[in-house]
Design a protein around this nucleic acid. Structure first.
Length: 504
RNA sequence: GCAGCUGUAGCUCAGUUGGUUAGAGCGCCUGACUGUGGAUCAGGAGGUCGGUGGUUCGAGUCCACCCAGCUGUACCA
């Protein structure tokens, strides 16, 4: 289709925004993260289960795309049979579908984990992608706060297993019932106030970013941002605003981390709301369980401004924030939370018609990787490549292929140079592949029944040396030496061992 | 979606008050080196200056609209 003679007709190779290609180094880092998270989840007794990336749209939520806006946030398409399908936007809704569909055969409470890509059709940004990886664990069939407490502790363990030191992250806990109680207390209950409640919750959620002034503006008439754009507020009166701010700013860590009394102070904002009281009681139980297991407030803390966006949360909600991500002054992007979750008692019930309590937690693998990469706290450089066997005489390809086979049979990653270049380009290729060494056999070596092994790592050091004759000479003998053909594997192993490189 | 800023080579950017043939560094390719990568030197390829229309004798430069990117904000079930 593309016409080579006319460049303007040539297709432009380009990636849709919000999507990412992954380099070998990033893939290796992602794998390592997955392995570590999995080890923690399995230690807690969770078992794997995975579901497809595509579900019926109505299984993902109550929302159904219409003709005008079939892709509001979710990638959707019409199947042959006129039914709407969607790419999953999280791993929780599909799990609810799976549990509901296999309810009778699963042990209850059902504990399972899964990792995979999810898709959101939203505006991308730093740490925000349209395809990204999540790693979830869920407990379905337990309404006990112990299940929620376990999620928080496991979240902390998982984050630490990823090499993020204690003090550099925090698991923040809140409860939707408390928030509902606060709203009830300022007279925002009932169907008529549904829209206003959402606006208030969104405002509360922004407290750590916008601060008191910004949230007060959003709760009242509205707020103008730094670009001059105006956001309409919730239209609360002064007394209501004071009440909400009082709740957000209640001292949740006051007096040496006395969580009991701190949570009591949240209670002032919920008045007589029974829902609110329930929420406070649940939080107190979670706090007690977590403390009994010796997780201090440096790991698991309580934060009245945590809301979480997803509408399906019904009780406890958690969020994991990196505490070192906001420390650079000007141009540092905000990455947001790197994990979250909570209690979603209504999600499975939607399919079953009977109450099925559930709670879960999700690590945002892609965002966490992006954040760590941005902070320079993770290695995403490509690892060492394979040993490269170079080609001198094209007539003797079979010989070279045999050398490669001998190395592979010994469990050493090796490849034959398959390009068309002469010798120098082959060296350059091996350099780019990060090959630890190359194997060379030209006519000289062949005549003597030898092969030359060149250590590219020592060779690189050699090039940097300026003085030190002794060291230079020693390196030179290491850098390149000829050995009998029969000792090829042995000599290559020596090179790998010298640099501590695993053969495969 | 709304607002602000920005679009010149693969990347980072120069480009004088509009003036002939649009430059540099890095990277890439080739060669010096018919058997040795990272160094040095020489050469080469690579641009409808984001797009369209307008003002002008003349536009990379000025104007309008469109598109894209970035940032903020909203949305994020």
């Amino acid at each position: 289709m593309a016409d080579k003679s006319d460049k303007s007709n040539r297709f432009k190779a380009r990636l849709p925004r919000g999507l990412e290609d992954h380099t070998p180094g990033e893939i290796a880092a992602t794998r390592a993260m997955i392995d570590r998270i999995r080890a923690v989840y399995e230690l807690y007794g969770f078992e794997p289960v995975e579901t497809p990336a595509i579900e019926y749209t109505d299984a993902l939520g109550k929302f159904l795309p219409d003709q005008d806006r079939p892709n509001e946030g979710v990638f959707s398409f019409l199947d042959d049979d006129e039914q709407w399908l969607s790419l999953r936007y999280d791993l929780t809704a599909p799990l609810a579908r799976y549990v509901a569909e296999n309810f009778d055969t699963l042990p209850k409470p059902y504990r399972s984990y899964r990792v995979g890509y999810v898709f959101r059709n939203e505006k991308p940004g730093p740490g925000r992608f349209r395809q990204f990886m999540q790693f979830d664990a869920d407990t379905v069939g337990s309404s006990s706060p112990a299940a929620d407490a376990e999620m928080c502790m496991m979240a902390a363990d998982a984050v630490e297993a990823l090499g993020i030191p204690r003090g550099s992250y925090v698991v923040k806990v809140n409860n939707r019932k408390v928030l509902d109680g606060v709203l009830e207390c300022i007279g925002l209950s009932g169907e008529a106030n549904a829209g206003k409640r959402l606006t208030v919750l969104r405002a509360i959620d922004k407290y750590d970013r916008l601060g008191r002034e910004g949230v007060a503006a959003l709760l009242g008439a509205g707020r103008k941002d730094e670009s001059g754009d105006f956001t309409r507020g919730a239209g609360l009166d002064t007394k209501q605003i004071q009440s909400v701010l009082g709740y957000i700013e209640s001292p949740y860590l006051a007096h040496g981390g006395d969580i009991e009394s701190a949570l009591d102070s949240w209670g002032k904002a919920i008045g007589l709301s029974s829902t609110g009281k329930e929420g406070i009681a649940e939080l107190k139980q979670i706090a007690a369980l977590v403390r009994a297991a010796n997780y201090g407030t440096d790991r698991i803390s309580f934060d009245s401004s945590v809301v979480r966006g997803l509408e399906y949360y019904t009780g406890a909600v958690f969020e994991v924030d990196l505490t070192f991500s906001t420390d650079s002054q000007d141009g540092s992007p905000r990455f947001g939370s790197v994990g979250g979750g909570g209690r979603y008692d209504g999600l499975v019930a939607r399919f079953r018609g009977e109450p099925v309590p559930a709670t879960g937690f999700s690590v945002g693998v892609s965002r966490l990787l992006a954040a760590l990469e941005h902070l320079g706290k993770i290695e995403t450089e490509a690892a060492r490549g394979p040993v490269v066997v170079t080609v001198f005489d094209k007539d003797r390809m079979a010989d070279y292929q045999n050398m490669v086979a001998a190395l592979r049979n010994a469990g050493i990653r090796a490849e034959l140079y398959l390009g068309s270049g002469k010798f120098a380009p082959q060296m350059k290729y091996a350099d780019r592949r990060k090959a630890p060494c190359v194997v060379i056999q030209g006519s000289d070596e062949k005549a003597k029944g030898e092969v030359t092994i060149k250590d590219l790592i020592v060779g690189a050091e050699l090039a940097k040396l300026e003085k030190g004759r002794e060291e230079h000479l020693q390196k030179q003998t290491q850098a390149q030496r000829a050995v009998p053909e029969a000792r090829l594997v042995e000599a290559v192993r020596e090179v790998l061992a010298r640099h501590g490189i695993a053969p495969h």
